[in-house]
């Protein structure tokens, strides 16, 4: 499976909002099985990169290649079907649905049942539904939410909601998972548990691209870091290399201290 091309690659990716250039000529790549951390001060354009990759806001210029194929012009649902899935910085669960239903929605594009299937419920559809539910339960167990399957998503505490988002994103069997500040708002114990979870995700052979502000965590689990500031890439490399980079220190100076 060691393909010569990276799993995900952006080439001179740029996005303008009106006159504002949110990201500028970003080159970024994620290899299969790799965990890459995307860091940078607030407003550096990290989430914009996610939005471009997932097709939510098409880039102004540049290209996004997934397994060597361009994702240009694909809708978000098509991108998800290709194998890229994401979570959101401001949690976006389906609040009026149960926990397990949320995860089952995540595997929407991996199931087939249409209207006729829904109405007549042939054996194949019943089986598919059972498989979806079993898979969803498995994922809930994986993220540590077993026993909460029948609660409403809104009833979950904050940290659990973040975990549920991860389970939901994994339900579409992605090869690449984009996590947008998954530790945001979590206490230290929860953060440690989350790091463990991300390691387990990687062990399942899923590549992770991760935005995070908690430096200890992101430096601890990323194979490689990419640093953005004001929409441009200012550094890239291992945690140690990035930590010593003067450009990175300059960008963060007075905002956050690296390695805190």
């Amino acid at each position: 499976m060691s393909a010569p091309v990276p799993l995900l690659e952006t080439r001179k990716l740029s996005k303008n909002f009106g006159g504002l250039r949110a990201i500028d000529n970003i080159d970024l790549s994620v290899e299969t099985d790799e965990t890459v951390g995307l860091i940078g001060p607030n407003g550096a354009g990290k989430t914009t990169v996610f939005n471009c990759v997932t097709g939510m806001s098409p880039p102004t210029s540049g290209d996004i290649l997934y397994r060597g194929e361009s994702l240009a012009g694909l809708r978000p649902d098509q991108v998800t079907a290709r194998g890229i899935s994401r979570t959101f910085q401001n949690i976006r669960l389906f609040r009026e649905m149960t926990v397990i239903e949320n995860v089952m929605v995540g595997s929407h594009c991996r199931a087939r049942a249409g209207i006729l299937g829904a109405v007549f419920r042939p054996k194949a559809v019943v089986k598919e539904e059972e498989e979806l539910a079993a898979k969803a339960l498995g994922l809930l167990r994986f993220v540590g939410l077993e026993g909460k399957a029948d609660l409403w998503a809104r009833q979950l505490p904050y940290g659990d909601q973040r975990r549920l988002e991860i389970a939901r994103a994994m339900a579409s069997d992605p090869s690449l998972l984009l996590l947008d500040e998954p530790a945001c708002g979590m206490n230290p114990q929860e953060t440690i548990a989350l790091m463990e979870l991300i390691r387990l995700i990687r062990d399942r052979g899923i590549a992770v691209l991760l935005i995070e502000h908690q430096m200890k965590m992101i430096m601890g689990i990323s194979d490689r870091l990419v640093v953005l500031d004001h929409g441009t890439k200012i550094a890239e490399g291992t945690a140690e290399a990035v930590r010593a980079d003067p450009a990175v220190i300059g960008a963060y100076l007075g905002k956050e201290s690296i390695g805190a």
Partner: peptide, 26 residues
């Protein structure tokens, strides 16, 4: 039956949050 099917779930998801629904492959 529609309500309790894959389609029904997609509808409710779309009603709750269409951005997230689209990101989940709907």
């Amino acid at each position: 039956r529609l309500n309790r099917s894959r389609i029904g779930r997609a509808w409710t998801a779309m009603r709750d949050d269409d951005v997230a629904a689209e990101a989940m492959g709907i």
